[in-house]
Every structure is written in structure tokens, then in C-alpha cells.
């Protein structure tokens, strides 16, 4: 299983490439410009939900970007929560 980290906006090729490889049982951490993929009631957030992966967003990054209406399927975590995920997932792929 792969822990994906996305640090690019939902219109980027990074996002596109990430979607190509993500699968059920994976997790994705949205950070930096990736937090815009967490906005509730968007096509992008629906696409992410459909992957079956566990969805997370770095709370500070979302706050800095003004992303407050976070999709219910996305959990807010701090950096410590991010570290916890890396303990569980043996592989990380950085998309940016």
C-alpha cells in the first residue's frame, strides 16, 4: 500500500498522475497547493472519494489557504498525524 503526498493543485499533472496510481487501501495526504483538492462539493473531491483511498489534509496548510469547507470524507491532521501515517505505510510517493 502506498502513502501518496500531493503538493500541487487539482488541475496539475501531478494530481492526474497521482489519480492514475492510487487505489483502495492507499492513503493520500493533501499539502501545500494540494489542499484545494479537499474543498467540499467539488468534482475533484468526488473523484478522490471514488478512489477508495483514505483522505487527509494538513490542517495548517488548509487554514493558510483559506480552505475551511473541507469535504466530510477528508480528515484534518497535523504533522504528527502525517508521521503516524508513514509508520503504517511502508512506501511514500511524492506528487508535486
Amino acid at each position: 500500500m502506498i502513502l501518496h503526498t500531493l503538493n500541487a493543485s487539482p488541475s496539475s499533472s501531478a494530481f492526474e498522475d497521482c489519480l492514475k496510481t492510487i487505489a483502495e487501501g492507499d492513503a493520500i495526504v493533501l499539502m501545500g497547493d494540494g489542499v484545494y483538492a479537499a474543498i467540499a462539493h467539488t468534482e475533484v473531491s468526488r473523484v478522490l472519494e471514488d478512489t477508495g483511498a483514505a483522505l487527509y489534509v494538513i490542517a495548517d496548510d488548509a487554514m493558510a489557504a483559506g480552505v475551511l469547507n473541507i469535504s466530510a470524507a477528508v480528515s484534518s491532521i497535523d504533522i504528527s498525524g502525517f508521521v503516524v501515517l508513514t509508520e503504517t505505510f511502508p512506501l511514500q510517493q511524492a506528487w508535486y
Binding site: 503538493n7 499539502m31 501545500g32 497547493d33 494538513i58 495548517d60 496548510d61 493558510a64 504533522i79 504528527s80 502525517f82 508521521v83 508535486y96
Partner: peptide, 14 residues
Amino acid sequence: GHCSRTAAAFAHCV
């Protein structure tokens, strides 16, 4: 971006 600082914070948490 914030990523370099996120890396530093990540290392602290590790």
C-alpha cells in the same frame, strides 16, 4: 510554498 518547513516539522515529529 510551505514544503521545506513542513519537512523540518516532520523531522521534529519523527
